[in-house]
């Protein structure tokens, strides 16, 4: 939206790996939701994960900051294996921004306070400095005028943009988006996607689980197609949408693109 400074000091084009998942498995009871997942995300890369519901997309996204535990395999973030619990895990989560389908803004705190909380309590910043940063981020996502309101007073699109600002305030190395527009009214989807496009443009490393094919086409460096707990196809958006190689992807695309 407005052109406030880029969050990453150095939107490095370097091709080093920020997130590496190797042979990750996860079960929900009988259901094998993640099956031998291998995925590497480079710094500055925008990876869009698409696929049918129940295919493990959200679980994959949530496993990266351990909101879901995994049964086996390894997840390495910026060279360090994902800690199991405690102080190290909290520190890691601070470096991994997360945006949820249902926004999850802290309901009892004002918009401004939502964005300053992590800066003050986790990053140990001065309150004044945190507020300045929060206001500039809120301005960046276009909700600066709502800073004193409470989440319930905002529209879904505004709440989701605040949630993005809240995650950005931690200066994350990577941003995870778990179906960020799925709970939004159609006319609010674009205002959120626009913020995300801007972020991608500014060089943020992003993993985006979404059903927005337009966003995948225009903003992604890579499309990961997941179905039945497996990564079925992994390619550029152009190739994926024009000429998918797997039958499963062809079937999926035929269902969503021609209606």
């Amino acid at each position: 939206m407005s052109g406030v400074a880029v969050i990453k000091e150095n939107p490095s084009p370097a091709a080093d790996d920020l997130v590496v998942l190797s042979n990750v498995n996860k079960h929900f009871g009988e259901l094998h939701v993640l099956q031998n997942i291998d995925l590497t995300i480079a710094r500055g890369e925008v990876v869009v994960v698409i696929g049918p519901s129940g295919g493990g997309k959200s679980t994959l996204c949530r496993a990266i900051n351990r909101l879901e535990t995994i049964d086996s395999g390894e997840i390495v973030i910026d060279g360090k294996p994902l800690p199991a619990e405690g102080r190290e895990l909290a520190a890691l989560r601070a470096d991994v921004g997360m945006v949820f389908q249902s926004f999850n803004l802290f309901a009892h705190k004002s918009v401004l306070h939502n964005v300053t909380l992590g800066q003050v309590r986790v990053r140990k910043k001065e309150k004044k400095e945190a507020e300045e940063r929060a206001r500039s981020l809120l301005d960046r996502v276009g909700v600066a005028s709502q800073a004193e309101k409470y989440p319930a007073q905002l529209s879904g699109g505004q709440q989701q943009r605040v949630a993005i600002a809240r995650a950005l305030a931690m200066d994350p190395k990577i941003m995870l988006f778990d179906e960020p527009t799925s709970a939004l009214d159609p006319e609010m989807i674009n205002e959120v996607l626009e913020v995300m496009r801007q972020l991608a443009h500014d060089g943020m490393t992003m993993v985006v689980v979404t059903h927005e094919m337009g966003f995948a086409r225009s903003a992604a460096n890579r499309v990961v197609f997941m179905a039945d707990g497996r990564i079925v196809e992994e390619t550029t958006p152009a190739r994926f949408f024009s000429n998918p190689s797997s039958e499963r992807a062809k079937d999926f695309l035929s269902k969503i693109l021609h209606h």
């Binding site: 909101l67 909290a90 520190a91 890691l92 989560r93 997360m98 926004f103 999850n104 009892h108 986790v122």
Partner: peptide
């Protein structure tokens, strides 16, 4: 809602902070 806790953990708050800053204030109300 469990989403409140998840969001709090996702910004790096530890268990006592999640409880003190996010969960208990809403629970008391």
């Amino acid at each position: 809602p469990v989403g409140q806790t998840e969001a709090a953990r996702a910004i790096g708050l530890n268990f006592p902070q999640v409880l003190r800053l996010i969960v208990l204030p809403q629970a008391f109300r």
